[in-house]
Amino acid sequence: MGTIDSDLYRDILQFAHDTPSWFQHLMEVWTELGLLLFAVLFVVAWWRARRGDPRALAVAVLAPLGTAVAYVISEVAKSGIDEDRPCRAVSGALAPLIDCPAYGDWSFPSNHSTIAAAAAVGLALAWPKIGWLTVPMAILMAFSRVFVGVHYPHDVAVGLLLGTLVAVLVSRLCAPVGARLVTTMRGSRNGLVLWFAGPGPATRAAGSGTAPRRGAHRR
């Protein structure tokens, strides 16, 4: 591994050890459980998109799909590159804050960073106003992997790039087909399908348009 990358890894890990214990524990929790927050946001994005146009719902549903695709690509790359974890490979580095993954659980690219980036970008495409939250979350997830000592900086940098690229491609390539599928689903007679696809904007507009007519009839 390059000297510059290893030196940066040592410096970040040294910084981690110099931070207060409460901050270390916070980062340890975030690096393990932070991805769950993205899962919650997937559900919220889908729910709010149920009253949007078909493309809006398609993009919201494609966000977790793109994340899954990014993870698979990352995992395939890891199994082929076989880069050992820095917590074993970098000499002179301090001990990681969490257990070093077992040998064979390779380092490049970072799955956590890939998943976080794909989720953050997918959510931002489906719900642009949430990008201010999800993008920093992904960057913090990537940094936390180096902070706790289980990844090189280049592992997380490539993971962020990979997740971003896959999320954008899946959304752009699949959204048109997804929008047509949502339109078909909204015309279904199956209650579960209709619940998943949502009423869309037309139903809401129709509902708001009938009330004034009933009021006018009473007058």
Rank of each mutant, 00 (worst) to 15 (best):
A93H: 00
G209F: 13
H217D: 15
H154I: 15
V69N: 06
A117Q: 02
P136I: 05
A93I: 01
L173S: 09
D105L: 10
A118L: 01
G131P: 09
D155C: 13
P54F: 06
A60V: 12
A124W: 12
M1W: 12
Y71W: 11
V146M: 05
C174F: 11
T203D: 05
Y152T: 04
I12M: 07
S113M: 09
P153Q: 09
L173I: 13
A216I: 12
T114V: 07
W22H: 05
A120I: 03
A77V: 14
P153E: 07
A63E: 03
N111I: 08
M141A: 06
A157E: 07
T67V: 07
M1G: 11
L97P: 06
A157Q: 11
A167D: 10
S107C: 00
H151I: 08
A142S: 14
L133N: 08
I130R: 00
W106M: 01
L97S: 07
P201R: 15
L13N: 05
R145L: 07
W47R: 13
N190F: 08
R189Y: 10
A77G: 05
N190Y: 09
P20W: 12
V59L: 06
C174Y: 06
A56K: 12
I130K: 03
S110C: 09
A56Q: 15
G149L: 11
A179D: 03
F147Q: 03
P136C: 08
L57N: 04
V182P: 01
V90W: 02
A120V: 01
R204H: 12
G2Q: 13
W195V: 01
H217K: 15
G200S: 03
T67A: 09
T203Q: 11
L123D: 00
A179T: 02
G191D: 10
A120R: 00
A77E: 02
R88E: 10
Y103L: 15
K78G: 06
V158R: 06
F15Q: 12
P128W: 09
R180G: 10
W22Q: 03
R50Y: 13
V69R: 04
I115R: 03
S6T: 06
G34L: 05
H112T: 03
P86V: 07
T134C: 14
A126R: 08
A16Q: 05
L35V: 02
P176T: 07
V150D: 01
L160A: 10
D82V: 10
